[in-house]
């Protein structure tokens, strides 16, 4: 069942064609699908500078290879990340978080002796978040900087954490000057039910912690 459009939300992908080493762009797919079943029109744009970034209502700054990060380093430096992270909600992952840390927007990175390559959980307010960590840094699994969620848990972290997905969707909608539906449309309820079921199975496989379902009104 299609509902009438509740407005347009723009999702921005920061150098998305280069920063998808671990499937982080899947977060935009998850967010786009979620917003669409909630009744919004969604546009995804490529972002490579500050002016494009602040035109989006949610930004994804994904993890890239060493070669990819080196190739965009100069252009990233030209962007005003203090302005961007204050103006637009977003999700930064892996090497993007390390890059933000290197620009002193986050606490600086220290290297651990041992690389961690496994599923881990992190805490963001009252949310527990599950994802795959592959890093030798001491950066926390998940933290906030301004409106940005900064996580070392890569891949489709929004898709497998429906409560975090909902938080991201609400932030995007708010940034677009719109309102999230007070009563979830049928399509959204059905989609959330599926996401909850699948995510619960993933959590059961990868952690001893209990999965908390997303409950919509």
């Amino acid at each position: 069942m299609t509902t009438s459009s509740k407005g347009r939300v723009v999702l921005g992908s920061v150098f998305g064609n280069r920063l998808n080493l671990n499937g982080d762009q899947g977060n935009l797919l998850a967010l786009k699908k979620y917003l669409e079943v909630a009744g919004f029109e969604v546009e995804v744009i490529a972002v490579g500078d500050t002016s494009a970034a602040v035109n989006a209502h949610f930004l994804l700054f994904g993890h890239g290879s060493q070669a990819a990060m080196n190739s965009i380093d100069a252009r990233l430096e030209k962007m005003d990340w203090q302005v961007v992270t204050a103006a637009v909600p977003g999700l930064a992952v892996g090497s993007a978080v390390e890059w933000l840390a290197a620009t002193n927007l986050l606490a600086p990175v220290k290297r651990r002796a041992e690389r961690v390559s496994k599923f881990e959980t992190g805490e963001l307010g009252n949310l527990r978040v599950l994802g795959y960590r592959n890093s030798d840094s001491d950066l926390p699994n998940i933290q906030m900087h301004n409106q940005f969620i900064a996580t070392m848990l890569h891949g489709p972290v929004l898709a497998k954490n429906p409560r975090l997905l909902h938080k991201a969707a609400q932030a995007a909608v708010k940034c677009a000057g719109l309102e999230f539906p007070k009563v979830a449309p049928e399509t959204l309820s059905a989609w959330v039910e599926q996401l909850n079921q699948i995510s619960e199975r993933i959590w059961a496989l990868e952690t001893d912690e209990t999965f908390v379902k997303l409950e919509l009104v």
Partner: peptide
């Protein structure tokens, strides 16, 4: 996670998803 870098456009249908990572594949 890398499944999400793959575009399964050439598949018309998938009847069954299985294996240890069935839930991850189903989500994708």
């Amino acid at each position: 996670s890398w499944l999400w870098t793959v575009e399964p456009k050439n598949l018309q249908t998938v009847d069954v998803v299985t294996g240890f990572n069935a839930a991850e594949a189903e989500l994708w």
